[in-house]
């Protein structure tokens, strides 16, 4: 639960930042300003915010194709993120990766990833590095319910368990693997049940309740930090949009969508803050206004930034080979 007002404010600030960033991304995509694919984190804000509130700057995360929320919660810069979504030279990846590939080595963000389940095995390497360097850092590996049917899930959780790696596997069960509801892509209801197969703890929490996420993941992160090995944390949440923008999500039952919108994590949090948390409506609005300004600034930065030069297209393939990439 809420320890103190500053902590609550920080949690809400992060959630609101994600909401504002994603809402802007949604609109900018619809306006044709953001090219490619965009997978929005709307509705799942409490997960990244709650988990990352327990992390230090020198901890690591691996992320997914639906990664904006994780990156914001881990301290990613909104300007560089938005510029990357636009494909601009000032973006995190210099316009070479786009929405699904944002990384920031200086903040322990070992990349969003376009391959479902890829981050799971990458996290084992991060965990191994921490183990061998004997630090008390941890790596949080975010992934969705759909990815738990990939071989990487099995291979990585097994490896992390047998090597006792300092990793927290956070499954964001948002109910869908692309268009397939969980009931049609796996027989189990709780992904956390699979932890038994690896001899590690598996826990479930309400992924729309940021306090529940914070508390549950804190325990798992503490275990990892203390060298007690990995935990599988499942956060039950809901993907409020389609798989990607432009997906009308006709496969989602209307009643289900409406029921989950009533459990919206931002609404829940702001209501709690004014009803029970000792915040005035004006205080909440001040946070909202601050975030609106930050995201507006990020959008302006992205719009004003230049596109990458043609020359830059052959850079960064290798550390030491540039022009040769053009031909042989």
């Amino acid at each position: 639960m809420a320890d103190n007002k500053d902590m609550v404010k920080d949690l809400y600030l992060t959630m609101r930042r994600i909401r504002e960033f994603e809402t802007n991304a949604m609109n900018l995509f619809a306006e044709g300003k953001i090219p490619g694919f965009v997978h929005l984190y709307l509705g799942e804000e409490a997960v990244a915010s709650g988990v990352c509130s327990n992390l230090r700057e020198d901890d690591y995360i691996t992320s997914t194709h639906r990664g904006h929320g994780h990156i914001i919660a881990k301290g990613g810069d909104l300007k560089f993120m938005m510029a990357e979504l636009f494909g601009k030279a000032t973006g995190y990846c210099k316009g070479k990766g786009g929405s699904m590939h944002i990384a920031d080595g200086t903040r322990g963000i070992i990349g969003a990833n376009g391959i479902v389940g890829a981050g799971q095995s990458i996290s084992t390497g991060v965990g191994l590095q921490i183990l061998l360097h004997k630090t008390d850092q941890v790596c949080v590996c975010f992934f969705g319910d759909g990815s738990t049917n990939q071989a990487t899930f099995h291979e990585s959780l097994n490896l992390a368990a047998v090597w006792n790696l300092p990793i927290v596997f956070v499954c964001e069960n948002n109910g869908y693997g692309i268009s397939n509801p969980q009931s049609r892509h796996q027989k189990i209801k709780d992904v956390a049940d699979r932890a038994v197969a690896y001899g590690i703890p598996g826990v479930v929490c309400d992924g729309n309740d940021v306090f529940a996420v914070r508390e549950t993941s804190a325990e798992a992160i503490k275990r990892a930090r203390e060298g007690k090995g990995p935990t599988l944390v499942e956060c039950k949440t809901y993907r409020q949009r389609g798989h990607f923008e432009g997906d009308p999500a006709i496969y989602k039952p209307k009643e289900e969508q409406e029921a989950w919108l009533k459990k919206d994590p931002l609404d829940k949090m702001s209501k709690w803050m004014t009803d029970e948390g000792g915040f005035s409506a004006a205080e909440v609005k001040a946070i909202d206004d601050q975030v609106k300004a930050e995201v507006a600034e990020a959008v302006k930065f992205a719009e004003d930034s230049p596109y990458p030069t043609p020359e830059s297209g052959v850079e960064d393939v290798y550390s030491d080979i540039v022009e040769e990439v053009r031909d042989r």
Partner: peptide
Amino acid sequence: RVRDTPISESAIIGCAVGAASTGL
């Protein structure tokens, strides 16, 4: 430093990717 892995080729390479990206 000389570690046996399970028979998990995908995890072996993925592990190398993560390890390399963070300092090994």
